[in-house]
């Protein structure tokens, strides 16, 4: 217990250190530029303590429960004993990694659903849109995008194809979708690409990428281990735009049916 308290204390201090520059900027501008007293300072302070404690507990719990297990699993799933192929082969057929794709997809989906920054943006979107966008619906759409992105990213590492081909094709799809998607969703969709990858997803996904790049024959972990995060930031844009297009199309079809 004492050992745990010690490590929690360290996490708390670390969080505090990360927050300090932000707090300094806000307080500095509030005092020297805006020069107006803030409303409900006590509530703000309590809220801030909640956020700090929350992030520290969250990180500590992840460190304790999920990260070691997740990293171990990423290693076990990519190990050549598990893949069961002849080690003397120079190339391994990409289908041999079947469970890796499934794992990449499910862990991407599950971690994104628990991502605190995404929860924050989803709450805000629901608030602003007056409930037209549901927080959970948005989060599910983003999670599906991340799941697909990370599976595809794993396939890219295994097959050894060039990263930029995927990213540039992804951009083409986003640009095409932007032309047709409802205007209201565009900003939110672009933003959801950036918020998917933080506290929970990055460490697990990085472990998976490095595990793959170091066990797949012919891959260099330094060069090929990167890129999964880029996939996880690009595909949610596509899935959120797609989700909005689908909702739009269905409501239009329903209203045209009503007219007849």
């Amino acid at each position: 217990m004492i050992g745990w308290l010690g490590s929690f204390w360290e996490t708390l201090l670390g969080t505090l250190r990360d927050v300090l520059p932000i707090a300094a900027i806000i307080i500095g501008f509030q005092v020297f530029v805006i020069r107006k007293p803030v409303h409900h300072p006590k509530q703000l302070l309590i809220g801030f303590v909640y956020v700090l404690l929350g992030i520290a507990l969250f990180l500590e719990g992840l460190e304790m429960a999920l990260f070691p297990l997740g990293e171990l699993m990423a290693k076990q799933l990519t190990a050549s004993e598990f893949i069961q192929v002849d080690a003397s082969l120079r190339t391994v057929p990409w289908q041999a990694y079947f469970w890796v794709y499934i794992f990449a997809g499910s862990i991407g989906f599950a971690t994104t659903l628990a991502e605190p920054s995404l929860i924050a943006v989803a709450i805000k979107a629901q608030e602003i849109s007056g409930g037209a966008i549901r927080a959970l619906g948005l989060r599910l759409a983003v999670s599906v995008g991340v799941a697909f992105g990370i599976s595809l990213g794993a396939y890219r590492i295994i097959s050894g194809t060039d990263l930029y081909l995927y990213i540039i094709s992804g951009y083409m799809i986003v640009i095409a979708q932007t032309a047709f998607a409802p205007k209201m969703i565009i900003g939110l969709a672009y933003d959801s690409g950036g918020v998917t990858t933080s506290t929970v997803t990055v460490p697990l996904v990085t472990a998976l990428g490095l595990g793959l790049a170091s066990t797949v024959p012919g891959r260099n972990p330094l060069l090929d281990g990167f890129g999964l995060i880029a996939f996880a930031s690009l595909f949610p844009i596509i899935s959120v735009l797609g989700y909005a297009q689908l909702a739009d199309w269905r409501s239009r079809r329903a209203s045209s049916k009503n007219k007849h």
Binding site: F48, V49, V51, L53, G54, G61, P116
Partner: peptide, 21 residues
């Protein structure tokens, strides 16, 4: 135990979000 911490942490974060950030 770790998962319990994560649940409590996430709850505090969301509560604090609406109150402060």
């Amino acid at each position: 135990f770790g998962l319990l911490l994560v649940v409590v942490g996430l709850t505090l974060f969301v509560e604090g979000l609406e109150k402060s950030l």
